[in-house]
Design a protein around this nucleic acid. Sequence first.
DNA 1: GCAAGGAGAATGTGATCACGATTACCGGGC
DNA 2: GCCCGGTAATCGTGATCACATTCTCCTTGC
Lengths: 242, 242
Amino acid sequence: MKRGFARHRPLPAAAPPQSARGKRRAPVVHEEVYARLKRAIIDGQLAPGRALSVRTLASQFSVSAMPARESIRRLVALGALEMTPTRRIMIARMTPSKVEELTDARLPLEARLAVRALERTAANLRKREALIARLSKIDMRLDRAIERGDVGAYSKANSDFHFALYAAAEAPALLGVVEGLWLQIGPFMRVVIERLGASTMVDQHKEAIDALAAGDAKKLENAIRLDILEGMSKIGEASGKV
Amino acid sequence: MKRGFARHRPLPAAAPPQSARGKRRAPVVHEEVYARLKRAIIDGQLAPGRALSVRTLASQFSVSAMPARESIRRLVALGALEMTPTRRIMIARMTPSKVEELTDARLPLEARLAVRALERTAANLRKREALIARLSKIDMRLDRAIERGDVGAYSKANSDFHFALYAAAEAPALLGVVEGLWLQIGPFMRVVIERLGASTMVDQHKEAIDALAAGDAKKLENAIRLDILEGMSKIGEASGKV
DNA sequence: GCAAGGAGAATGTGATCACGATTACCGGGC
DNA sequence: GCCCGGTAATCGTGATCACATTCTCCTTGC
């Protein structure tokens, strides 16, 4: 195989320069660029191996090269973007061993975050109910995405579900680490869903919600672990061919 | 307390521009700057709250502002550096809850890396012996540092020990995550050692080496977990006062 | 003696240019 | 038809400038 990487194409997330929104000065341009690019990656809108460049990104976001450079630099540091030996930039590729390592990291970390979310809402059941309501709503959105076969919406709803749960753990440092893992996984999750079809995806979301409602930490942990294992095994099967 | 942060002082690691080492052209300036700054942080050479600035860093490394900016951007992304609301940069501070979260992350991840190192050398005992020899050597260096009361050497030897072990796991993605954790912990480890004195530090390094030699995964995992718990509990006690 | 205020220094950020290396593209030769 | 080679476009990187904001520190007024 050539191992070359894809030509530049317009970024799907590249919204217009939003001149309509008035004079609301941007809260530091490069933060905005970074946030949108990060979101696009986690949600799987960018395929692995997809090429990026400072100037291209800059023009797609209608900013100068500087903010684009900084956003790219950050995402390379987090492992979401990859640099070739000749310093070209692309969405990170996946390898079977990387899938294995990331699974190793996700299992204990996300299980811990889930249990922490349970613990954090133990003293405040109203909070827990609100969390459950939020998760249920996201999960319904996810089901609708499956029905419609909308891969993009599915991918986004899936990450939304996990992070809504983890956010309730109130553990920003841990959350940051996990977010870094998702930044590396997002693109493949999407590829896998696209290839297998959203309807073939199974998850343990309803089990997780039940465990949360029952206050059963062990059950919740199992649901999360199983959810991760199922998803990652699918990625693993496909990772050799991406 | 004022919560202001320390004035700029020369960076301890700021070696001369090394014009002596021949014409060996730098492999991209900002990589070099980043690597040295990262090393200085992990080894605990920079105190929490210590101020950094683009221009200061640049002049200390005898480079222009550009490579300094990029290095700082990367380390902020990794959580090693912190930005105040007014966008000043400093070595990240520690809080008790952050210690707890980072401990949660370190325990399973580093235990896994250690066990992986054991597994990886199971089929190649020469490799394992070489690893044990390397670790023993580092541990002796660590003992000497304790005798001399050399806090800097102790701090460096300690991180060297862990990463020498983890490197043998041959899991770059996992290692990257753990390195990110150490980037956040390094500065405090140093502060704690300095405050309590290197001689009060205990570790489970010899137990880990024994477990490695015996091929006992369970014992190795316990040694690593205990080593982490001991170290982090010391950081936790002090973290309120940093 | 001390707090308030203002002048000046320092800071992060964005923009732009130059340079050397790398890549992509197109045409000619086999 | 296919491969090779040269040329032009594109790339990451480093440097430097301008600007608004923030911080420092000293003076002034009470």
